[in-house]
Structure formats: structure tokens, C-alpha cells
Design a binder for these strands. Structure first.
Lengths: 240, 240
DNA sequence: TGACATTAGTCACAATCCGTGACTAATTCG
DNA sequence: CGAATTAGTCACGGATTGTGACTAATGTCA
């Protein structure tokens, strides 16, 4: 979020920021995906929640600004920081910016603890009222996460260095919004050479201890497959 | 491209545009994908090529500005117009814009004919020198096209209303950069309910005439499949 | 006119992939 | 100890898919 010195001052002098950079931090929290909201820096609306945002400074790049915002809000570097899109419609935004560039920041569960009561994690489907443009950013972030799930090692950015396969499966189920079959999941995972076992085991309360794995992608051989048209077209009614 | 009245004037008065909107128009041209470049509007560098771009005007949205640019450059509406990303590093850009928002415009082959010698289609892998940021936009457009190929009906935007299945397959081969097997391609296509046959046939010179199809996605039923890890990880050396 | 080249379109087989239920293994709790 | 709980594996059958060979319809050219 904008720290007190710069952009908040700009706003209070009624200068409209032409361009803002906004971050959507995401982390799993139990069985829900949550995003970080902070109290508005503007003293006139301190009871409102908003995504961390600020104007660009000096000769910063967009990526620089996004990284700075995450550092300021979380105190730590994210597992993955990626641009989502630029939002340039007329929806309201805390900065009244003409254009806002949104970033997605993925953080492992439990790594980042917001300091004090000025920030809190909210489940993405139970957000308090925020500005329409930032609301669209959260939706866009969710869409981006789902679309890139099989192109980018997103799931591993939401987990600690080492994890159990059940944890990994839970993250996939969280992001996809549906249950997966254990045997299929593991068969596909082993075929992909994405993880390697460590020699540690974790006993998580009751039940058999689980082996810990780490993300370690290896070269995979195998011919390219044909075209998949499955993502196109109109999906029929989902069966429960 | 910026028409003479507005942005060129801005630039000649040495005002740095903070934000530009740039378009990457793509169309197949024979066996190659081509992009449209125009002569620089700036009278001091009229021999340079650039992607169509301009600053935002009045209370235009980003999408408005992109649509206006395409209309000005092609004289027609594109089959698909989609934002790629915002470019905000320090690479040089014709406008010296701090941030440039790039759009992808897909046009059916042969639809749009640039008027006069101020615009021309260039194969994307044989571009003349253009500014580094616009060069990155073209690369980004290609990546975006390939990534969204199975999420968005991109291939159909590059074809006329009706087309033969061989034409469709050629577009897929062009975008994927590899050959596909005819029987597999058609089997998958029929299973996806994306196209429907018309009662027209086209005889394209020699060989058996081909039936014409149109894009007409239908509701598809079928349970969701498991997770695919194939897009992740490091691909082994391609075999020729 | 009739072989041949060329492009469209289909078929069927084998190999692989994948959903699924049932199974074994290792631990905690009472 | 036995029930409950979680981890991990196996194997069957059906679905998917790579592939080569086939038929069909046209133009070309001797």
C-alpha cells in the first residue's frame, strides 16, 4: 500500500494519479484462498479496505514498483510475482487512476504475517466492499491463476520448500475448485518429473506419516501431443 | 498508428507521453504469420517502422483506444482484440512512454489491405528494426497466442467465416510450429463440437473439393478431466 | 480417354492414458 | 489390542490417441 510519504500526499493535494500499480497477494488459508487487504492510507477513508497500491516512483519499472509494494505489505518476497493485466476502464479505483496495472503475488501458506490491524487476509469469495476496479483485479487474478495452473509452477509457489503430496493435491483442488482422485493425481505427477522425494517424513497428527517432496523439475522426454480443443467451446451444465 | 493531428503534434512539441497504447496486428500470410508495421508519423524519422500506437484521448478506455488504433490502421474491425500486457521497463519506445499497454489484434487472412506504402505486413520472424519495447510486444503477442490457443477461439479469428478443415489445420500448425496428423486433428475437432458443416464445397484447384465449415460452438457434455502437468517442467530436446 | 498426381475424408488397430475401487502400510487414540 | 485415520500402491477396463492405410473426387497431361 502507499506509504504515507508519497502518494497519499499526492492524493491529498488532489493530483490525480495517471497510473497506479496494484498487487493482489494470494495465499491459501486452510481450505480457502485468501487475499491481503490493507486499510486505506487516505486519512479521510481509513475504514475502507483496499489492495496494496501506489504510483510509480522515479525511474522505477512496473516490476520494481510491484516488488516494492509486496515488500512493504508482506515484509517478504513472494514465491511468484507476475503481471496480470492493465485495467483502463472507467471503474472507480482508490487512486482514481486512469490506468492501473495489476500484479499477482503468490505466497506460501503461513510465510507472511501482516503486522498489526492495518492488514488482513480475506477469503476471495467473502471480500468486504472494495473499489470496483480492485474487485475486478481480484477476479482477474483468480482467472489468471486457473489459466496458468498448467503452464506455470503456480501450485509450488503456494507451498513451502518441502511438502507432502497430499498438500500439493489440496492446493490443486483449491485452485481448480474440484476434487481429484489420489491415484490419478500421483500417477500424472510422477510421469511429469516435477518433484523429487526428500528423506524426511512428517507425521501430521493421526494417520501414517507422509514423505516430504521438493519441487525439482527434470528434463522430460516424450513427443508432443496433438491439439486439445477442450478449453474451447461452451461447457455443459456441471454435474454435482 | 497515431494520425497526424494529435499525438504526432504532442511528440513534436517534446511532451513525453506517460502512457501509450500499442497494437500488434497479426494475420496469416501464406505459411507465415505476419504483423502490420507502419511508417513513423514523426516527420523526423519517417523511414522507421513501428507498430500502430497512440496516447489515450479524452476519457477513452484502454479498449476504446486499441479499437480506434485498429480501425485507423486496418480500416476494419479485427476478429479478436485482446490485451496482452503492460510494458513498463526502460526499453526504448517510439513515444518514450513510461508504460505501454499492448494489444493483440487478430485478422483473417486477406481481409485487411493496408492502404498505400505507409503500412506493410512483415513475417514475425523477419521484422525490420523496430524499437526494443515494440519488439518485445511482438514476442509477447506470439507467446500469448500460443498460450491461449486452447483457451480462446484464436484460430477461428484468423480465418474467414467459412473455411475448410485443411485451412483450420494449417492455422493450428502455423501457430504451434509443428505438423499435426490429419485423422487425429479431425477426430478431436469433431469431439469438441466447435464447428458445423455448411452445404457448400470449395474446389481449390486440383484435388477433391473440400466441404466448408463454420465456427459454431455447441454445448459439450463430459466430465472434467484430471490435471495435466505437461505444460510444466523442462522440455527435453526437440526431435526433428 | 485414361493413367496419374493431388487433395479430402474415413477407418481400424495398437498403444497409451486415465478414472476408479480396492487394497496394503503406518500411525494415533481409546 | 482394535478402530479410525491418513499415506501410498495396484490393477482392471474403458476412453483417448498416434498412425498407416484406405477410399473418394477432382484436375492434368499424354
Amino acid at each position: 500500500m502507499p506509504d504515507r510519504s508519497s502518494s497519499a500526499a499526492n492524493r491529498s493535494t488532489a493530483r490525480r494519479t495517471p497510473l497506479s500499480v496494484d498487487v493482489v497477494p494470494l495465499t491459501p488459508h486452510g481450505r480457502q484462498l485468501t487475499t491481503l487487504l490493507v486499510r486505506a492510507a487516505d486519512p479521510r477513508s481509513r475504514q475502507r479496505w483496499e489492495l496494496p497500491w501506489d504510483a510509480m516512483r522515479g525511474d522505477e519499472t512496473l516490476d520494481d514498483a510491484a516488488a516494492r509494494l509486496v515488500r512493504a505489505a508482506l515484509g517478504t518476497a513472494p514465491g511468484l510475482l507476475e503481471q496480470i493485466a492493465a485495467f483502463g476502464d472507467r471503474q472507480r479505483h482508490p487512486a482514481d487512476a486512469m490506468v492501473s496495472v495489476a500484479y499477482l503475488a503468490l505466497v506460501a501458506e503461513g510465510t507472511a504475517v501482516p503486522i498489526g490491524g492495518d492488514a488482513a487476509w480475506f477469503p476471495v469469495d467473502e471480500l468486504p466492499p472494495i473499489s470496483p476496479r480492485q474487485r475486478a483485479m481480484v477476479d482477474g487474478a483468480m482467472r489468471a491463476v486457473r489459466m496458468r495452473l498448467d503452464q506455470s509452477p503456480i501450485a509450488f509457489s503456494l507451498l513451502p520448500q518441502t511438502f507432502t503430496l497430499s498438500q500439493l493435491q489440496e492446493v490443486y483442488e483449491l485452485l481448480l475448485g474440484r476434487r481429484l482422485h489420489k491415484a490419478s493425481f500421483r500417477r500424472a505427477l510422477h510421469a511429469s518429473w516435477l518433484v523429487e522425494p526428500t528423506d524426511e517424513w512428517r507425521s501430521e497428527g493421526r494417520g501414517r506419516p507422509a514423505q516430504l517432496f521438493r519441487y525439482a523439475p527434470r528434463k522430460r522426454r516424450g513427443g508432443r501431443r496433438g491439439v486439445r480443443f477442450e478449453g474451447l467451446g461452451v461447457a455443459a451444465a456441471e454435474r454435482s
